[in-house]
Write a protein that binds this DNA or RNA. Structure first.
Length: 805
DNA sequence: GAGTTTGAAACT
DNA sequence: CAGTTTCAAACTC
């Protein structure tokens, strides 16, 4: 995948490549630089859909009106992140994050330049949420460490970097990082060195020469650093991931110092070229539809649409995604790579999050692009690995995405991708259109499919105003892209963010499917946590689906397809074992008694009564979640996690309390998770330990039973195959006529004739004595009849053959 | 399938 | 924190 070169950018239509759209926010809206956006501020402008051009690039742009959250390097070289004591950073991660940036690659960062001085590179992420996650900055190393969960780790990391950790709180500086990474994957934003002072203080000339930089370092693994360096001089250095995925920040060189700095962040995701084996070409989501006018209805533009042809026609499959005439909007692109081997994986879809004012463009690029990629991890800045981000041992895929003021979330599902993409939709906008949307509505205001061309995979993403989105069937696209609309029932995957000010929990504790609104006065940000099963759906479904925020039918199959790692089991383990439907009768599925609820899933195809664990009872559900979290902040974390440091085995986080089962029945959570009890268990009469003879016996029995089952299954399969094969042959023979079996000639007429012959013979035999002789005569006659039948059959076969010849 | 057992979750 | 109750899954018949 090529990165659009500056030259090429200049040739591109402004609406596409105009990086100026990523404008100097401070200039135009200086007062917006603070994070705290007032509620309702964003609501007027709906987020547009981005439609990527069919290419290997992934671009995602989301615009958030009036809300700028930019992290800029200040003149004093301190990093500030803005407003309200909390840094607007959204980090999503859990052990398995939906929008997951693979350990290696990871970070999707929306950056935009905020200062017109330009030199300073500012990293802006938009729409961010409150930073509940610890955020530390290491001035010495010019690093910002974002930690999702505990700050202790961040602190340590900062210390390891040689500096004391700092909390960034600087007015006017906002940082949005939409980084979705696995837990344990810290994201480090590396700032320009203090000495270089790339910030506002620099002159334009300095800008050009010195190339103010901002570095985004995504730490994929605990030990991996993925720094991304963006410079003003059209050069971006990216530490490439093992998967050859690159995050690039292309910056259009300003013609003059006065010109705003434009950034294009390009990230190569599963680029075809890089992963030729990939069966599914990378997805490009490319084009972000932004609206300048608050009243504009949402639009989804298909990638195949003609207005994108300019992009598509670009050789090298270069995609330039830029804010469409929305200078002050930010598109946050989340690009993640699912697994370490994900270079093989096909699809990465940009996340379109309606958050900031600035648009970040993500593109795939190749080495040929103006963006330079550096594979060396030893960048000028010492990047210290930081602690994990996200819940430890969290096995659930969760994505937390900042939401706009009155956000509604639409989910984008990408086949073949483990990422979940969420589109946030301002509800008020939808209502402002005055057009109620209904099922199968295809109007622009109500539902317009976004098509993402992924090469072999095409996705149709209906985007519908959240509040009016009820059972909106995806509209088939008739564009040249030949997008096929899924016939699958529209699924609502994410709950609209409703005010839930009290909830300021650790994000990792939130169950998937939860959208949390910001605390009062905390700004227009909310959080969306997406269930992991969506990922599965992404992988299974050839389409991209945007989830509506309401009217989620219980019949949809999402919940039953849950693939969340359960009880510490790997995803693969759970993949083959769909979660059982619950049978709750009294809890309304809003207590942890309910497995669905406990796993952060909506009930679906369950047998529960009076179920409130669905989108139709969002309020109740959110309250229940809050209650659970109040009671136990770890309530939604996986119970099975890593043991103590150095222990490789999984173990129950709390331990069991079994008294009668000997911990050898599924009543025991340890046993159920196929792990042994540990010292933290309070069980009585435990037999679930390594040397336990009972346990060994049980295991042997279980193994034997499993083997038996497998054998039986294999036998059944084989038998079935043989029968099927036999039937196939028979059918073929019969249908061909050449091999008709004799019995097929025993027609009714033949039968009657035979019977007549036998009766006649019997009459004759009656006159014959003894009886044995009579029977012999009848049997002989029967033999003759059979011979005649067979003879006739043979003759017919011969005739048939001769005819066919 | 109904009834029992079990232990986590919820409650006091 | 401990004891009790509630709950739904696991289990038995």
């Amino acid at each position: 995948m090529d990165v659009v070169s500056p030259e090429l950018n200049s040739l591109l239509p402004d609406e596409i490549m105009d990086t100026e759209a990523i404008e100097d926010v401070q200039h135009s809206q200086p007062d917006r630089t603070t994070v705290s956006s007032q509620p309702g501020e964003n609501t007027s402008v709906p987020m547009e859909t981005d439609t990527p051009v069919a290419s290997e690039n992934v671009g995602l742009c989301s615009d958030v009106p009036e809300q700028t959250q930019a992290l800029t390097t200040s003149t004093d070289s301190t990093l500030g992140i803005s407003s309200e004591s909390q840094i607007p950073i959204s980090i999503t991660s859990t052990a398995s994050t939906l929008l997951t940036l693979k350990p290696v690659l990871t970070t999707s960062i929306a950056t935009t330049k905020t200062t017109d001085s330009v030199t300073g590179t500012s990293v802006t992420t938009s729409g961010l949420q409150k930073l509940s996650a610890p955020f530390t900055i290491s001035p010495a190393n010019h690093q910002i460490i974002l930690n999702k969960v505990a700050s202790a780790q961040a602190t340590e990391a900062a210390k390891s970097a040689g500096t004391s950790p700092q909390v960034i709180k600087q007015e006017g500086q906002k940082l949005l990082v939409t980084a979705i990474g696995k837990s344990g994957q810290p994201i480090v934003l590396q700032l320009p060195h203090a000495g270089s002072k790339p910030g506002v203080s620099q002159t334009s000339g300095e800008t050009k020469c010195q190339a103010p930089q901002f570095k985004v370092v995504a730490v994929g693994g605990r030990s991996e650093l993925k720094p991304i360096i963006g410079s003003a001089g059209n050069q971006v250095t990216t530490l490439q991931t093992q998967q050859l995925k690159t995050v690039q920040i292309a910056k259009k060189t300003p013609a003059s110092s006065a010109a705003p700095i434009k950034f294009i962040i390009t990230k190569t995701v599963n680029s075809k070229g890089l992963s030729p084996q990939t069966s599914v070409p990378p997805v490009i989501a490319g084009r972000v539809l932004t609206q300048n006018s608050p009243v504009m209805p949402q639009r989804t533009i298909s990638l195949s649409e003609t207005h994108n042809t300019s992009i598509q026609s670009i050789p090298g499959k270069k995609i330039a995604i830029s804010p469409l005439k929305t200078p002050s909007k930010v598109t946050v692109v989340s690009v993640a790579s699912p697994t370490s081997n994900t270079s093989q994986k096909s699809v990465a879809l940009p996340v379109n999050v309606a958050l900031g004012q600035q648009i970040l463009t993500v593109q795939q690029s190749t080495s040929a692009s103006p963006v330079k990629l550096a594979t060396s991890q030893t960048t000028a800045q010492n990047i210290k690995p930081v602690q994990t981000v996200g819940g430890v041992g969290s096995s659930q895929f969760k994505t937390i995405i900042p939401l706009a003021a009155q956000p509604n979330v639409q989910q984008i599902q990408v086949p073949g991708s483990r990422f979940h993409y969420v589109r946030l939709v301002t509800a008020t906008t939808a209502s402002s259109t005055g057009q109620p949307s209904g099922p199968t509505t295809s109007s622009i205001q109500t539902a317009k499919p976004m098509v993402v061309s992924t090469g072999a995979v095409r996705m149709s993403v209906p985007i519908v105003p959240a509040q009016t989105m009820k059972q909106v069937a995806p509209k088939p696209l008739t564009s040249a892209a030949q997008v096929v609309t899924t016939t699958q029932t529209q699924q609502r995957l994410i709950m609209p963010a409703t005010p839930l000010p009290q909830i300021q929990p650790n994000f990792t504790n939130l169950p998937p499917g939860t959208v949390l609104a910001p605390a009062p006065g905390g700004g227009n940000v909310g959080y969306a946590v997406l269930p992991a099963q969506y990922v599965t759906q992404l992988q299974q479904s050839p389409f991209v689906t945007l989830a509506s925020s309401s009217g989620f039918p219980a019949s949809t199959g999402i919940q039953t397809q849950a693939r969340l790692p359960l009880n510490g089991l790997s995803t693969s383990e759970t993949t083959s074992r769909p979660r059982k439907p619950c049978n709750c009768t009294k809890s309304q599925c809003l207590k942890l008694y309910c497995d669905c609820f406990a796993n952060g899933e909506f009930c679906n195809n369950c047998n529960c009564n009076n179920c409130f664990n669905n989108l139709e009872h969002e309020t109740e559900r959110l309250k229940a979640i809050k209650t659970c979290l109040d009671r136990n902040p770890e309530a939604f974390k996986p119970k099975i996690g890593k043991g103590k440091e150095g222990e490789s085995d999984r173990r129950h986080s709390k331990g069991c309390n079994c008294k009668r089962s000997g911990c050898l029945k599924n009543y025991c959570e340890c046993y159920e998770a196929k792990i042994m009890c540990s010292s933290i268990c309070k069980c009585i009469g435990c037999k679930n330990f390594e040397e336990s003879p009972e346990r060994k016996t049980l295991m042997h029995l279980a193994d034997a039973a499993e083997v038996r089952v497998q054998q039986q299954t294999a036998a059944k399969t084989k038998l079935s195959s043989q029968i099927s094969d036999l039937l196939m042959r028979t059918t073929h023979v019969i249908s061909s006529g050449g091999g008709r079996l004799p019995y097929t000639f025993v027609t009714k007429e033949v039968l009657e004739a035979t019977c007549e012959c036998l009766l006649e013979q019997a009459k004759k035999a009656e006159q014959t004595q003894p009886q044995a002789e009579a029977e012999r005569m009848i049997l002989e006659e029967f033999g003759h009849c059979l011979m005649r039948i067979i003879s006739s059959a043979g003759k017919a076969k011969a005739d048939s053959a001769s005819i066919s010849c």
